[in-house]
Design a binder for these strands. Structure first.
Lengths: 216, 216
DNA sequence: GAAAACCCGTTACTAGCGGTAACAACAGTC
DNA sequence: GACTGTTGTTACCGCTAGTAACGGGTTTTC
C-alpha cells in the first residue's frame, strides 16, 4: 500500500481506538467517581496502562479529553434552552432547569466534571499561581453565559465587563445551589428553579424587612 | 501528684501540641498548596508521621481541623460585615468586599479551603452518595447566609425554603465570580463588588434588550 | 523477498503517597 | 520496683501515577 492511504487508515484506526478508550474511561468514572485510577480504566478497556499514557499523555490529559466531551454536550443543551423563542424569564428558567436536570440525571459525571481532583498543576515555579483551580466546566459556562448576556442585554456603559461578571456569577449561583440541592434534596426541582429565577429577578431588592430584624 | 491535676496538665499539653502541629500544617499548606503531604507537614513540625495520625486520625481529620480554623475566622469577619448598622445594599456590598478581600489577601489558604482534594469519602457502600462533594466552607457559608436572610427578609410564603436556596445561590455567585476574578484580574475589586450587587439588585430584570438580539 | 520503520501491547520497575504495626524511652502512679 | 500511658521512632504495606525496555505484527521501502 502506498503511503497516503495507509497513513489515513492508521489515523482513523487510532481515532477509533481513542474513542473506545474514552468510552471505557467513561464507564469507570461513572462507576468509581472522580477517583477512578488509570489501572482500573486500562483494565476496563482490556489493556494496560502504558497504552493509555501513549494516547493521552498523563491522567490530566485523559480527564481533560473526557471532560471536554461531557462539557460540550451539556453546553449545547444549555445553548438550546438559551436560544428558545420565548420570553426572557422563561428562557432563564428553562436554562436553569436544563442544567439541574442534567446534574440530576448523571450525578457521577457531574461530580467528575466539577471535581477533577488535582491535575495539570505542573509546579508553579515560585510565583503565586494563585487562582485557576476552579473546574474548567465552570469557567467555560461562565464565559459562555457572559458572551450571551453581552450580546443580548443592554447594561449601559461598561457593558462588556459587567456581562462577564454576571456570567460567572450566575453560573456560580446555579452550580452552588444545584450542588447543595443534589445532596440534601430539600425541595422539588421546579421550586428551586423558580426561587433562583426570583432571585435573579430582583426580589431581593424588592423584599421588605421583617419586623424585629435590622433588615438585610 | 494526684490524678486529676496530672491529667489536666497532660490534656493542656496535648492541646498546645495540637495547636503547634496545626500551625506547622498551616505553614506547609501556605507554601505547598492543597496537596501538602503528611510527610512534609510532619517534617515541618519536626516530628514524624505517626504522631500526626495519633492527633488527627487521618489526613481528612487534619485538614478538617485546619479548615475549621480558617472558616471560623472568615465567617466571623463576614458576620461583622453583615451586621453593620447601615442600609441593606451597603451591607451586601460590604460583605462581598470582605469575602473578596480575604481571598485576595491569602489565596493559598482560600484555595485549600475550597479544594480539599478528596477526603472523608469512606466508600459509600453501594447506593449513590451523589452529592456532598462541594467544599464544606461553601456549605457552611450558604447555610449561614440562608439563616440570616430568613431572619431578616420578608419573602412571603415558603420563606424559609427560599431563604436557604438564596443563601446557597448567593454564596455560589460570590465564590465563582471571586474565583474567576482572582485568576484573571479583569477589573478592580470595587467594580466587581458593584457589579455583583447590581445583579442582586434586580438589574437583570430591569435591563432592556439590545437591538438585533432576541433578548435574554 | 529481505530489511527497516513503525505501532500495539506487554512486563517490570521507580518514586511517592496515605496509613499502620511494632518497638523504644520517658513520665507519673501504685 | 513494677505498671501504665504518652511521645516518639523505624520499618513496613498497598496503593497510586508514570516510565523504561522489550516482543511481535504490519506496513513501507529497497
Amino acid at each position: 500500500m502506498e503511503t497516503t492511504r495507509g497513513a489515513e487508515r492508521q489515523r482513523t484506526a487510532a481515532e477509533r481506538r481513542r474513542r473506545e478508550l474514552l468510552e471505557a474511561a467513561d464507564r469507570v468514572v461513572l462507576r468509581d467517581g472522580p477517583k477512578a485510577s488509570m489501572n482500573a480504566i486500562a483494565a476496563e478497556a482490556g489493556i494496560t496502562k502504558p497504552i493509555l499514557y501513549r494516547h493521552f499523555g498523563d491522567k490530566g490529559g485523559l480527564y481533560r479529553a473526557l471532560a471536554k466531551r461531557h462539557t460540550d454536550a451539556l453546553l449545547s443543551a444549555l445553548r438550546a434552552a438559551l436560544d428558545a423563542p420565548s420570553e426572557r424569564r422563561e428562557r432563564v428558567e428553562a436554562t436553569l432547569d436544563t442544567y439541574l436536570a442534567a446534574i440530576e440525571a448523571r450525578p457521577q459525571v457531574y461530580r467528575f466534571l466539577m471535581h477533577p481532583s488535582d491535575d495539570a498543576a505542573p509546579a508553579p515555579e515560585q510565583g503565586f499561581d494563585v487562582g485557576r483551580h476552579s473546574a474548567p466546566l465552570l469557567r467555560r459556562l461562565g464565559e459562555e453565559l457572559g458572551k450571551v448576556i453581552a450580546e443580548r442585554v443592554d447594561l449601559g456603559p461598561d457593558s462588556e465587563q459587567m456581562a462577564r461578571i454576571w456570567g460567572h456569577g450566575i453560573v456560580g449561583m446555579m452550580h452552588a445551589a444545584g450542588d447543595w440541592w443534589l445532596g440534601d434534596r430539600p425541595c422539588s426541582r421546579e421550586q428551586l428553579v423558580r426561587s433562583l429565577a426570583d432571585l435573579l429577578w430582583g426580589r431581593l431588592a424588592e423584599a421588605g424587612d421583617l419586623p424585629g430584624g435590622q433588615g438585610f
